[in-house]
Amino acid sequence: MQYFLTILLSGLLAGVMYAMVAIGFVLIYKASGVFNFAQGSMVLFAALTFVTLTEHGVPFWAAFLATVAVMIAGAVIIERLVLRPLADRSPLTLFMATLGLSFVIEGLAQLLMGTDVHQLDLGIDDLPLDIAGLQLSQFDLFASAVAIGLVVVLSVVFDRTRIGIALRAVADDVLAAQSIGIRLPVIWRIVWSVSGVVALIAGLLWGARQGVQFSLTMIVLKAMPVLIIGGFSSIAGAIVGGLLVGATESLADIYIGPLVNGAVSNWFAYILAVGFLLIRPSGLFGDRTIERV
């Protein structure tokens, strides 16, 4: 039982990390109905920029702010060059565009900053803590604290501020939002910037865990089932989906894995997601507006 709980908890904490990435998706999806496949490459780009800066002796916060500036600049460029010309196209076209974009961003990131694996030390030890007999990593606890903080901040921004309400208006009805004077390009720039910052935070946490390297882009693939299970349009859903995927994945690896020759975590989340698609297509927390047949 103790063992089971330890596995479950470590899975849940890994799930928090998935959720971090998924939140970036939800932001953009809510405001523009685009599934941003480039989120993973944005994570890589942000983390690489940050690491390159700190390795050149830039202090932590200066590097952080500089990377935020870079991500905002990137958001403005993407909005102007990619999103605006594609404004009235189908969601599928936009999805393909972000797929192309992800190749550009990851290619550029590695052309500019190299393909080496960088170590990233955030100054938090990855020591196992013993809490009530359960082995927990201090780092994982820190990561979940950051994720929870991020969610609180984002929910407050979404619910209480003028910009947040404008975002929700756009998400609700683009034409109506525009007709009352909300400027779509501004909104897009803001959400892409914010998800760039979320990408940076996710990149730092993931990068500290497994090194800043190309495989960071792969977390985009983990975020997809998270989103389907949680629902594309809900931040809370992203968290719950992340936890669910993290937990079931590590449990499946331990309990199903041995029955079928090895780790199943590569695809298990997807099969789970396909199950959700068949039974509850809008996910646990998603709006019912998802296009159904």
Binding site: F35, P91, L92, F95, L221, M224, P225, I228, G262, V264, N266, W267, Y270, I271, A273, V274, L277, L278, P281, I290, E291, R292, V293
Partner: peptide
Amino acid sequence: LPSLRIKGFYLAASTLGAQFFFEW
């Protein structure tokens, strides 16, 4: 099969599932 219930890029997830499952 999921295409019977959903549309658009959600289907991408199901086919991505196939991608990882068969490689495994």
